[in-house]
Design a protein around this nucleic acid. Structure first.
Length: 152
DNA sequence: GCCAACGTTGGC
DNA sequence: GCCAACGTTGGC
């Protein structure tokens, strides 16, 4: 079982939206490195839901991967911001996953807290200038994050 | 609103 | 294949 961290702007789609929807297709990722991580996800993997471009910044919840290898539907939608004219249904360029709500954390684990606990080598999200929206989290680091949740 | 980081595009 | 220009992300 692998752990991940996935960013979303709460103004666009936040943890409250996922709690309401229970499941969602994580669409709109248009970065090859992030896509490759999405491709390697497996059902049962857990992902931290991270609020970016927000106040406060940080991890707000946990979700579970329920299906992987889904062709991102927005790449075929000419009205979408994420439309990709070069992608075909026969060989889609962008794959993503379906996630389900697991929990909203009682207290957000802020970026400041994450910075105080982890080095950029341990947790990429604390690296200044980092823009990757889907990142792997080592199991030992994930366990330490979960410990921070219960400690606060 | 600013700007650092960095991925993508396109001319050559 | 190089690299300058440009666009986007996301923290501050």
């Amino acid at each position: 079982m692998n752990y991940w961290l996935m960013k979303s702007e709460p103004d666009v789609y936040g943890i409250a939206d996922l709690r309401r929807d229970r499941q969602t297709i994580w669409d709109g990722v248009r970065n090859y490195q992030a896509r490759n991580f999405l491709r390697s996800m497996q059902p049962g993997d857990l992902a931290f839901f991270y609020h970016s471009n927000a106040a406060p910044l940080g991890i707000t919840g946990v979700m579970r991967i329920v299906e992987s290898g889904i062709a991102d539907p927005t790449q075929f939608d000419s009205t979408s911001n994420y439309y990709d004219v070069k992608s075909t249904k026969e060989s889609p360029r962008w794959q993503t996953v379906c996630v389900e709500f697991v929990e909203e954390l009682p207290h957000l684990v802020s970026l400041d807290t994450l910075r105080s606990q982890f080095s950029p080598d341990e947790l990429l999200v604390v690296k200044p200038g980092n823009r990757l929206s889907v990142i792997p989290v080592a199991p030992a680091i994930a366990q330490r994050i979960l410990t921070l949740v219960t400690a606060t």
